[in-house]
Amino acid sequence: MTKLTNKVALITGGASGIGKGMAMAFVKEGATVAIADLNEEVGQQTLKELQQYAPDSMFIPANLAERDKLAGIVQQVVDRLGKLDILVNNAHASKMVSIAEMTQEHLDLSFNTGFYPTLYLMQAALPYLKETKGNIINFASGAGINGDVNQGSYAAAKEAIRGITRVAANEFGEFGINVNIISPIANSPGIQQWGAEHPEEYQAMLNRIPLRRLGELEGDIGRVAVFLASEDSAYITGQTIMVDGGATKLR
């Protein structure tokens, strides 16, 4: 018996990077996964990999900034797969810029792809998660917790997500729904590209991580997501789990 047998999960930004890592970890633990992503070509490729383990898994082309279509993403999952046990709000886009240079456009990009989808997908999923006593996993970042420079719009949206997650944990707990946060440092394609372009800064970042490595997408971040989506974490809610090799130590 695997940890997520017969569970249905929806993962935003699930076509690549951390989202794909979690999706692969989920299907290997018995879940059927729906990935929602803007990149249809990559999404279809990832779907083929997921279906090797979970044939009923599905891909939903989605632009999360189109707020009026968010509830429809959840509805597609339920209509096709019959229920929803796990919601993972992973997708988020932003641009690095100093506070002095920040514009409304920068803020809109970060909040429209990160905070607002997290909020509205939680709302849309709530009736179905009540039925399954399900789990929500949202995503934060050390950029917000530590106040990384040139990350103002991203940090603001990520900390807003942390705030709404704590509220959701308090409000949804009576329904048996757990709501938690992962704050990762991961060996994503974006980090790999940045490291190749800025090798000295990349090494300095590694040196600040006590375990001296980046998290593996499936083996590290995905495994913690499996834990938070399973019965193993049934008595954990409202928490920010730092999956960052010890880079940030919450108090």
Score class of each variant (00 low, 15 high):
Met242Ala: 11
Lys7His: 03
Gly144Leu: 11
Ala9Asn: 05
Asp232Leu: 05
Ala234Arg: 13
Gln123Leu: 14
Ser98Met: 09
Val226Glu: 06
Asp56Phe: 04
Pro210Tyr: 12
Ala124Phe: 11
Gln192Asn: 12
Pro184His: 12
Asn150Tyr: 11
Phe26Thr: 05
Ala91Phe: 02
Ala156Thr: 13
Ala15Cys: 08
Lys48Glu: 09
Phe111Cys: 08
Val88Thr: 06
Ser110Cys: 11
Met22Gly: 01
Glu101Cys: 00
Phe227Tyr: 15
Lys130Gln: 14
Ala204Ile: 06
Phe172Tyr: 11
Met102Trp: 11
Val77Tyr: 01
Phe115Gln: 10
Glu218Val: 01
Thr46Leu: 03
Ile241Thr: 08
Asn146Glu: 15
Ile221Gln: 10
Tyr235Asp: 04
Ala234His: 07
Gly43Ala: 09
Met22Ala: 07
Thr32Asn: 05
Ile177Gly: 06
Ile181Arg: 01
Leu121Val: 07
Glu131His: 01
Asp244Leu: 10
Gly147His: 11
Ala15Gly: 13
Glu159Gly: 00
Asn150Cys: 09
Ile73Arg: 06
Lys158Pro: 02
Asp56Gly: 05
Ala91Tyr: 04
Thr248Ala: 02
Glu159Val: 02
Ile136Trp: 05
Tyr120Val: 01
Thr240Pro: 00
Glu66Ile: 02
Met102Glu: 14
Thr103Met: 10
Met1His: 09
Gln151Glu: 13
Asp244Val: 14
Gly195Met: 12
Met58Tyr: 06
Lys130Gly: 06
Asn146Phe: 09
Gly190Tyr: 10
Phe172Glu: 03
Leu87Arg: 04
Gly215Leu: 10
Gln151Leu: 10
Leu84Pro: 03
Lys3His: 02
Met205Arg: 14
Glu101Lys: 15
Gln44Gly: 09
Arg80Tyr: 05
Pro55Leu: 08
Glu201Met: 12
Ala169Asp: 02
Thr12Leu: 02
Gly238Tyr: 02
Leu38Trp: 13
Pro61Phe: 05
Met1Asn: 12
Glu105Met: 12
Arg162Pro: 01
Val167Pro: 00
Asn112Pro: 01
Ala93Cys: 11
Met24Cys: 01
Lys28Tyr: 01
Asn207Ile: 00
Thr46Val: 03
Leu211Gln: 13
Tyr128Cys: 03
Ile11Gln: 04
Ala125Trp: 02
Val8Met: 05
Asp232Trp: 06
Asn150Trp: 10
Ile221Asn: 09
Ile185Cys: 00
Val42Ser: 13
Ile136Ser: 07
Arg251Gly: 13
Thr32Gly: 10
Met205Val: 08
Val33His: 03
Glu201Pro: 00
Gln239Asp: 10
Tyr235Pro: 01
Gly215Ala: 11
Val42Trp: 10
Gln192Phe: 00
Pro199Ser: 08
Leu10Lys: 05
Gln123Phe: 06
Arg223Met: 10
Ser57Asp: 04
Tyr154Glu: 13
Ala15Arg: 07
Ala93Gly: 00
Gly195Lys: 13
Leu129Val: 08
Thr113Val: 10
Lys69Phe: 04
Leu81His: 08
Phe175Cys: 06
Leu4Thr: 01
Glu105Ala: 15
Met22Phe: 02
Leu10Gly: 03
Gly21His: 05
Glu105Lys: 15
Lys130Arg: 15
Asn90Tyr: 02
Gly134Ser: 07
Pro61Ser: 06
